[in-house]
Design a protein around this nucleic acid. Structure first.
Lengths: 187, 187
DNA sequence: GCAATTGTTGGACGCGGTACATAAATACTA
DNA sequence: TAGTATTTATGTACCGCGTCCAACAATTGC
């Protein structure tokens, strides 16, 4: 209910023009109760995305061990992207201009990005054993690069309007060159 | 003076524990005057980095036109990285744990990242003429991937302690695989 | 039935950020 | 030099987010 109330109000009044108290009132609860479920206002924008992102650890763990690390990541991200069907497009991203959520999204996105990057880096560290400094740089660079490419693909997909199909092909096309490029460095 | 006062207070009390009024008082000005020079508190953390990042447009424009677009970006980022010598390490990043600036940095970093990504994407669009949707995805993916890799290298470099040398080799090693990987897609 | 735990609410507070009006300082002009 | 215009600094008030704490309701478990 809180999420629905927030989506409605953000569409009516914009993100900055909507106060937390208004959302709580429309949802029929108290302001403090809202803070019990969403510690910050911007969390309301991320429920859908966060739910989809939660699939990453399992997707990584399910990857066959004989695959090169970069291709395992590629496959895992493909699986995560498959969770975002054409009927499940986060409204906070597609309606970003309508709601004026861009700055709020930018302010809250990087912490999520870094969480996923940390997951990837640990996954890579477990697969690519070498622990010297150069390997660490390669792992972190690849982790962040491939996630950034996936995020870019996400953005292009979200901006494609109603004609967009599934997310997975976008993400795969966006990250494939990165996986290819870093394969040698992480071999 | 404002920057110095902020750096001192952040080290003494942490970022969250320091109010804007305290910074202004130590600098000998009013709270409103501080807001005249730094529109948000986190801008105080970014003066050094922003100054270094300002070199990117010029570095891109100065790249020889016969270079592949990916290598032009690589060269431009190398030049930007060269602006961060071992004597010019942004205190907000190296002392991040000491000051507790991590969440604040994460909240304010992405807008800067997207600004640079937009610069890169426009640069690529000018060099790689094709305007179909696939090309757009490739350009945006590469722009964000290479910047993310550079940011990762920046982080590894900043975390290397006093033994770190210059930033440029870190960045170059971090982004080289990305440039190689996307070269064909942006040929 | 009661106790303990959990969820909900109200009230108060601090701080960041904005808006606006005013005063000081500087620059330009005669 | 005097006076005017234009920044720049300051004071005041305000709003909203986020936190803390204490009181209250509801649920679970015995």
């Amino acid at each position: 209910m809180l999420e629905e109330a927030a989506a409605e109000l953000f569409l009516e009044q914009g993100y900055a023009g909507t106060t937390i108290e208004q959302i709580a009132r429309r949802a029929g609860v108290s302001r403090n109760t809202l803070f019990n479920y969403f510690t910050v206002k911007s969390d309301l924008l991320w429920v859908d995305v966060d739910a989809g992102l939660a699939a990453l650890p399992r997707a990584l763990a399910a990857c066959p061990g004989d695959l090169p690390a970069t291709d395992a990541v590629r496959q895992a991200l493909h699986e995560v992207a498959a969770g975002f069907g054409p009927g499940r497009v986060p409204w906070a991203l597609t309606q970003a201009e309508m709601m004026g959520t861009r700055s709020a999204l930018e302010a809250s996105a990087l912490s999520r990005f870094m969480d996923q990057a940390e997951l990837l880096a640990q996954f890579l560290a477990a697969r690519v054993g070498a622990q010297d400094a150069g390997e660490d740089l390669a792992r972190r660079s690849f982790a962040m690069a491939v996630l950034a490419a996936a995020a870019a693909a996400f953005g292009v997909w979200a901006a494609s309007g109603v004609s967009r199909g599934t997310l997975a092909p976008y993400v795969d096309a966006g990250i494939a060159p990165a996986c290819d490029g870093y394969r040698a460095a992480l071999g």
